[in-house]
Simulated assay, not measured.
Amino acid sequence: MSTDFQRARVALGDRLRELRLSSPDGRLTGTQLAERLGWTQSKVSKLENGRQTATAEDLRAWAEGTGRPEAIGELTARLKGLESDYRSWRRQLAAGHRPVQDTLNAEHARTRVFHAWQGSMVPGLLQTADYARHVFIRYAELHRSKRDTEDAVRSRLKRQEGLYDSGKKFNILIGETALRSLICPPSVLAAQLDRLTGVVGLDTVHLGVVPFSASLKIPPANGFLIYDERLVIVEDWHAELWIKDQDSVTTYMRVWKTLRESAVFGADAQRVISRARQTLGES
């Protein structure tokens, strides 16, 4: 969990505690407030200590339960600021994958230099329509979210128009696992690998592959995207983290550069892709 997000969550918890202790009805204990709200006392404790993220409904109930309904607007604003850094998939995907892709498209539109690391999946920026379709279906099944697969695919492909903008640079690293993971039928993966082979020659794209045989200076953990060294987006199973504090962004940039030392490029990258393609036969 990003440090800036946790600091914001702790600050929100401190504010909730202030409201409880300064209730017009008199100082409330955590147990008394829990009884008023029909919650467990542990939930009150977790919210106040920054160990659980409040929902908008939680904040409204807290403000009303402490006799401070005028604080609802303030608390909601704090939550929105917090959620700009921590974006749960449950909330993001309530309307489907298309809005999430549109938001990413806006970030790509304003970005001139882009860095990415994906160890086990082809990055969205380089996905074919069929490959992207299977990815969205798998994630919709996982999160039990709205199925808007075709709209999401169209939005993701629109982002790829930036690959042909001479004013942009895309520095992308992928692990060899991404070339071999059958999250789609073999024929779809074969076409995806053919697409990657063609991407190697684009002037705007610097594509590297970290082979299975490469010596690694650090473990290749979860994937991340870096936008102009001002924003890092990290995907986890439960949420997407938007990291903006400069120290953290610098750390992710250092991770990317370290992984780059283990990657191969150009003709060597094409050979790794070709070997993976050959295992799929004439798909």
Score class of each variant (00 low, 15 high):
Asn49Thr: 15
Arg27Val: 12
Gly67Pro: 08
Arg133Ala: 09
Val232Asn: 04
Ser2Pro: 14
Leu33Asp: 03
Ala11Pro: 08
Thr128Tyr: 09
Thr40Gly: 05
Leu189Gly: 10
Ser155Asn: 05
Glu176Ile: 02
Arg27His: 13
Ala95Gln: 14
Ser23Leu: 01
Ala190Met: 03
Val122Ser: 03
Ala77Glu: 15
Val122Lys: 02
Ala71Thr: 10
Arg154Val: 01
Tyr227Ser: 05
Leu125Thr: 09
Val122Glu: 08
Arg271Ser: 14
Arg36His: 08
Leu196Val: 12
Asp85Val: 06
Thr76Trp: 12
Asp58Asn: 15
Glu235Thr: 12
Asn222Lys: 06
Arg133Asp: 10
Asn105His: 04
Leu157Asn: 01
Leu196Thr: 05
Asp165Ser: 02
Ala95Ser: 13
Trp62His: 13
Phe212Val: 09
Glu176Cys: 00
Arg9Met: 10
Ala129Ser: 14
Arg254Asp: 12
Trp256Gln: 10
Val113Lys: 12
Pro24Asp: 03
Val100Glu: 01
Val10Pro: 00
Arg27Trp: 00
Val153Tyr: 02
Val272Cys: 00
Glu107Met: 01
Gln92Ser: 15
Asp58Tyr: 07
Ser181Met: 07
Leu231Gln: 15
Trp242Arg: 11
Gly13Thr: 07
Ser155His: 06
Thr40Phe: 00
Glu229Leu: 11
His108Glu: 05
Thr197Trp: 15
Glu64Gln: 10
Arg78Ile: 03
Leu93Thr: 01
Gly13Trp: 05
His206Asn: 13
Ala269Arg: 02
Leu126Val: 11
Asp228Thr: 12
Asn171Ile: 06
Gly162Leu: 02
Phe170Ile: 06
Gln192Ile: 00
Asn105Met: 04
Lys169Glu: 12
Ala109Asn: 04
Phe136Gly: 01
Gln41Ile: 00
Gly162Ser: 05
Glu57Asn: 11
Thr251Asp: 05
Arg254Phe: 05
Ser145Pro: 07
Trp256Ile: 11
Trp117Phe: 12
Asn222Pro: 01
Arg91Ile: 09
Glu70Val: 04
Glu70Pro: 11
Leu75Arg: 08
Asp4Lys: 03
Val200Tyr: 03
Ala190Thr: 10
Ala109Glu: 13
Arg271Trp: 02
Gly13Tyr: 09
Leu19Glu: 02
Ser187Tyr: 03
Arg154Gln: 13
Asp203Tyr: 03
Gly167Ile: 14
His238Trp: 08
Gln127Asp: 03
Thr66Asp: 07
Arg195Lys: 11
Val209Lys: 03
Ala132Leu: 01
Asp247Glu: 14
Lys158Glu: 08
Arg15Tyr: 05
Ser262Asp: 08
Ser42Gly: 05
Gly30Ile: 04
Val153Lys: 09
